[in-house]
């Protein structure tokens, strides 16, 4: 899909290659910075719909969990011996506000439809357009650079120059895991809790190890999503909140001059300064 409405003047547009539909040329900015085209319209729209859907699903899901805040493994509940009992969740985290199983279920299922429809649009588009392969699939070189990337991340060191044009290997693997494993897992485990769906999806129920295992896996997957959101939003802020938000709203992302990084630059001092250390 191309974004005709936001097209820059024709001379700025590179001829679209077969795999690069919607690709735009860089726009030079003052001070050695460059605007680069990062998020096509489909990504931006599905991203924000997904934000709304996932937040409503998490908050209504917490309300549903509150009706029986105990988790078990296996076919049925072992009431005297739950695997995990979750603490009471404050009201402001619940949809609707205050415990209400009937209403929470309606919110949950309505936004589950939106989540699934939106997710399918994204996945099909990402596969067909080749974006999944181009931007998210890690190359062999990416994978060999995994441990150095981990070390860079551990030092809260993130390049904001040309190296930020493509996702780093940890980003690629995390995004892939989210869109191909964790988010689909929510749907599969959710459906496996449905006695109606069990009548046709009995095999799936067996793979999960029973309805109570499916429910616990649903909760664990939701926990992984919360963990992702915390790290994701944290890094969005750390690596340039306005630039990142602008990219996910307008599509354009600003590349800083060579050598720029987000994060502490203390350890970048040349050794000559630090004699004796």
């Amino acid at each position: 899909m191309t974004d005709a409405a936001a097209d820059p003047p024709p001379e700025a547009v590179r001829p679209a290659s077969a795999s690069g539909a919607g690709r735009r040329a860089d726009r030079p900015l003052p001070g050695g910075r460059t605007d680069t085209w990062r998020h096509p319209l489909t990504v931006r729209i599905t991203h924000w719909i997904n934000v709304v859907a996932v937040v409503v699903l998490l908050m209504s899901g917490l309300n549903i969990l509150a009706a029986h805040p105990h988790l078990y493994w296996g076919l049925s509940s072992t009431f005297a011996d739950p695997w995990l009992s979750t603490p009471t969740v404050p009201n402001w985290l619940l949809i609707p506000q205050g415990r209400n199983l009937a209403e929470a279920r309606k919110w949950h299922f309505l936004f589950a439809w939106i989540f699934v429809a939106n997710g399918l649009v994204y996945l099909i588009w990402a596969l067909v357009s080749g974006r999944l392969r181009r931007r998210l699939a890690p190359s062999g070189r990416d994978l060999r650079g995994f441990w150095p990337a981990v070390r860079e991340h551990a030092r809260f060191h993130f390049p904001t120059d040309d190296r930020a044009r493509t996702y780093n290997v940890i980003q690629k693997l995390t995004y892939l895991a989210m869109v191909l494993a964790v988010l689909p897992m929510m749907l599969i485990t959710g459906l496996s809790m449905s006695p109606g769906f069990n009548a046709i999806g009995g095999v799936l129920l067996e793979i999960m190890g029973g309805r109570q295992s499916a429910r616990t896996l649903h909760f664990i997957s939701a926990g992984l999503i919360v963990g992702f959101i915390v790290v994701h939003v944290g890094l969005v802020i750390w690596t340039g909140f306005f630039n990142n938000m602008r990219a996910m709203i307008t599509g354009w992302f600003t590349i800083q001059p060579p050598g720029s990084t987000a994060g502490p630059k203390l350890r970048r001092r040349p050794p000559a300064d630090g004699a004796g250390s």
Partner: peptide
């Protein structure tokens, strides 16, 4: 299995 709307299951 008996699946309660609250989330628990008994067989």
């Amino acid at each position: 299995k008996h699946d309660c709307v609250e989330g628990w299951t008994s067989i």
